[in-house]
């Protein structure tokens, strides 16, 4: 770990100003950043502590939505009564992730900004374009069972590891950020990015910009939803594939459908065409199969992760069935579908 200076920001404006300086990182829950610093993957010279700023509350929005403070913890968010009742998909996704100890410390803003679990990204002795631009991608042709099947590039096949973000993508949340140039709002689908030839950029934040809140729209899914996470062990493991589904059922037909995949790409994966295909239709196995195929259009395996394509196909179909039937996946009793 490098020597670094530590500053506690008095307010968001001051934090944004400090954050614009080179080699500076914001510290909130620290559950990912501190690990990365210990592994010498992140080597900031300056930490700006934003964990005690006031944006740590969960508040109703006038239009009926909910504002999740960026510095509220994952645990406080998942167990907030309003989140549990109005956004159970989000609550379920958060509880599918990490461990209780981590969720107690990790913040909502930090969850958006956590870095990939690619083995090579974590090992500073191996080439990695995300960690060291231009050094190459070791995961291609290497150990890549956990890597991406969608939206990859020749420079990077890493995935975004979050569960929470998959639900936020399906919920079409908005990310509020504040930077030296002021405030702006980013649609969730535009927040994270694909690796392209700049895989070191995980998201579209500009220097100094801080996530201050995540806004959930009034329109949600309270009956027909599910968060299905498939992984190699039942807790404290990242998704091989996860699916967030929200459906609105009217008269036996799907009036609105939102789907997002986790564990398969550099960002939560959405395909609007797949959602459009579901809307206005009666639920059926055929329909769900078509939607799954549409979601996975263009999927490519890397050898040892080829199975993820078929696993995702099955997971999407199963999740759509769960959601349509109103039997969401339990995150505590994982024996039962």
């Amino acid at each position: 770990m490098n020597r670094f200076s530590y500053h506690r920001a008095g307010d968001i404006a001051e934090a944004a100003q400090m954050g614009a300086e080179p080699d500076t990182r914001f510290l909130a829950g620290g559950t990912n950043l501190v690990d990365l610093m210990k592994a010498n993957v992140e080597r900031p010279t300056r930490l700006v502590d934003i964990s005690r700023l006031s944006q740590n509350t969960i508040e109703d929005l006038p239009e009926g939505g909910l504002r999740l403070g960026a510095f509220a913890t994952n645990a406080d968010t998942a167990y907030d009564e309003r989140v549990e009742q109005r956004y159970p998909l989000l609550s379920s996704a958060i509880l599918a992730g990490a461990s209780p100890q981590l969720r107690n410390a990790a913040t909502n803003g930090g969850n958006l900004n956590q870095r990939t679990r690619c083995y090579y990204f974590y090992d500073t002795e191996t080439p990695c374009n995300k960690r060291e631009p231009g050094s190459g991608c070791s995961a291609i042709g290497g150990v890549n069972r956990i890597h991406a099947i969608l939206g990859t590039s020749e420079a990077c096949i890493a995935t975004h590891p979050s569960d929470m973000c998959v639900a936020l993508a399906a919920l079409e949340a908005e990310v509020r950020v504040q930077g030296p140039a002021g405030e702006r709002v980013i649609a969730f689908a535009d927040y994270h990015r694909l690796p392209g030839d700049e895989p070191w950029k995980d998201n579209t934040l500009q220097p100094g910009e801080i996530v201050t809140a995540i806004d959930l729209p009034a329109d949600s899914f309270t009956e027909n939803y599910t968060y299905l996470k498939l992984r190699d062990r039942l807790s404290y493991a990242f998704a091989l594939v996860s699916v967030a589904v929200g459906l609105k059922m009217e008269g036996g037909k799907i009036a609105k459908a939102r789907l997002a995949l986790g564990g398969v790409a550099h960002k939560p994966w959405r395909v609007p065409a797949a959602e459009a295909l579901l809307e206005g239709q009666e639920p059926s196995a055929d329909l769900f199969a078509q939607a799954a195929d549409a979601m996975l259009q263009g999927a490519v395996g890397q050898g040892t992760n080829d199975f993820k394509i078929e696993l995702a196909r099955r997971a999407i179909r199963r999740a759509l069935r769960q959601a349509a039937a109103g039997t969401p996946q339990s995150q505590t009793n994982k024996q039962v579908a």
């Binding site: 679990r117 090992d123 290497g142 039942l234 807790s235 404290y236």
Partner: peptide, 25 residues
């Protein structure tokens, strides 16, 4: 153990990435 056969390096040297059972398993 995830062993990179190209260079003999162990790639999952941590309790997060090398899976042993948790209580739920």
């Amino acid at each position: 153990t995830q062993f990179d056969e190209r260079n003999g390096r162990i790639m999952n040297p941590s309790l997060a990435e090398y899976h042993v059972p948790v209580h739920l398993d």
